[in-house]
Write a protein that binds this DNA or RNA. Sequence first.
DNA 1: TTGAAAGCGCTAACAA
DNA 2: TTGTTAGCGCTTTCAA
Lengths: 338, 338
Amino acid sequence: MKQRVTIDDVAKAAGVSKQTVSRAINDKGEIHPATKARILELVNTMGYRPSRLAQALNTQRTFMVGLVLQDITNPFFPEMARGVQDTALAHDYSALIVNTDEKAELELGLLNMLVAQGVDGLITFTHHAADEELTKFADTFRPMVLINRLYEHPNVNLLLIDNKKGAESAVDYLFSLGHRQIGMLSNAQIFPGQVRRVQGYKSALAKHGLPVREEYIEKESANLAGGYRAATSLLGQQPELTALFCYNDLMALGAIRACRDIGRRVPEDISIIGFDDIQLATMNSPALTSISVDKYELGRLAFKRLLALIEDPHRPVETIHMGVELVIRESTAPLNQT
Amino acid sequence: MKQRVTIDDVAKAAGVSKQTVSRAINDKGEIHPATKARILELVNTMGYRPSRLAQALNTQRTFMVGLVLQDITNPFFPEMARGVQDTALAHDYSALIVNTDEKAELELGLLNMLVAQGVDGLITFTHHAADEELTKFADTFRPMVLINRLYEHPNVNLLLIDNKKGAESAVDYLFSLGHRQIGMLSNAQIFPGQVRRVQGYKSALAKHGLPVREEYIEKESANLAGGYRAATSLLGQQPELTALFCYNDLMALGAIRACRDIGRRVPEDISIIGFDDIQLATMNSPALTSISVDKYELGRLAFKRLLALIEDPHRPVETIHMGVELVIRESTAPLNQT
DNA sequence: TTGAAAGCGCTAACAA
DNA sequence: TTGTTAGCGCTTTCAA
């Protein structure tokens, strides 16, 4: 069985005090170069690794950040998580990833668990906890980056995806293709008024002088199966629709499959557009037209921002916006005039 | 700014020693029910949460396990990670997920980082570190569950997917459909002799009296783009192939897309079969025939096994096998006799 | 340039 | 049933 080698072991072996060893490994304080070299040598041969636990207990820094995600199963999140992780690792941090499974009850518990675990900061991408609960939490925990959620708190840094703009450009594009009956598959898990992708959809319709009809919006879980169900049901009730804007790519992919099963060709009979631009959308047949979000960059930015906040607790929070971009592929086509 | 409430604060407030508080929160040792109730009450109102850090330093238990994955971007891994996490959470553990990006150099470093972080155990699903390095590591760190890799060490518990059997049943099925020219898209990142999915492919061919031809095996990265490239290249050189068995679903999906782009219809002109049965494979057009692995269960089992090892350090390691199952969908069809 | 003492927040062992 | 004393492995004083 392994017996951890501690700083004392190294100190004894080097014939110095553990304080000196500490100085050597942390590059801190005055220390004779020769002594330092000798100690570093020993550290290597003995395979000594300082216990982060013990360090953390002193410094109150664990070099861990928490990453709270709503659904690690949606490829959007792993891509973003890599952005966080890679950046974190490059700064000698590690990330504790947890999944809320879109359950509000879990969210606060998980947050508190991460705090108990001693994380130095938190990145969250969820929208289930109520604002008041979040506030109660944020009041006692400072460095926190909230992604893709409108919320205000002096301790919470915002990182917002341009959802509304993205939704608008999706609808604009469909409109330019000649589509006039445009439906939307939305996310049932979010409080309706808060979905900026729906707001963008509505405002774009209005801008083009098209009526905004609630019966054109179908709400479901924002995943493959949800998209499948939503499309089946919506197209069953509103067969006149010639285009569908979907809350995310997973829903769009599910919708495309549903169309195939009910005999509607994509894009000949109906155009479908997603949001997120996950990798898989590229390889689908037809390849998915989508609103692209740079997920890796999103993760990178979130960590960078969090790190700044951790390193300087007095730095004020700010709101960062992340642009999006329409990527045209095969699932959209000009309106078929027949 | 928040000032952590410590056990001393609670003890003072309750007018007892911190030891008593410790007893109350940990349900350990004799304690008067009334005292306990009073303390617990205080714990609640004061919002006290024991520092896992401090606890860990004493007990040498962090209640964290490390989960080392090769590519969090492949949907296989998030699904499995959820199995690990959910189970871990249910046992009051949390999981530190890290991604090796299939880089051998990173793997050992990450492993050591997790150890420094104080994880109680390790679950790894990678195959890049050399056996000797792994051994050197395993010699000093005990509770470890290795998934899907053949390796022997008294400290390492194995959890093996029935790759060979799965590959065989894939080829058997293609054979039963009448296919005789069956190619394979394999994983270039693994040392060739070690790929049991290839071994199964070969042995099944041999069983049916078909020749095993190395030029029918194309090696590439085991992802969408790799599958796309591999299929394009293989079918370009060996146009007589009527079926493709792929290392995983991602490659299969890429291959299907490649077929579409070179004008080969799936499954009319060519049958394609994957491995893993990721969710997305269901919604693809055509839906993918695949060898199904219960990923969530795999994660659950891995954690359960690790926990047993953590709780009883003297428990001997064992090798667990995980079955697979052929799931027939739309990407395979009887050989087209023309 | 180095070392000794104290303490981070908690639990284990023993004593009362 | 409760409190006291140590100590986990490190860093932070402060003194030498």
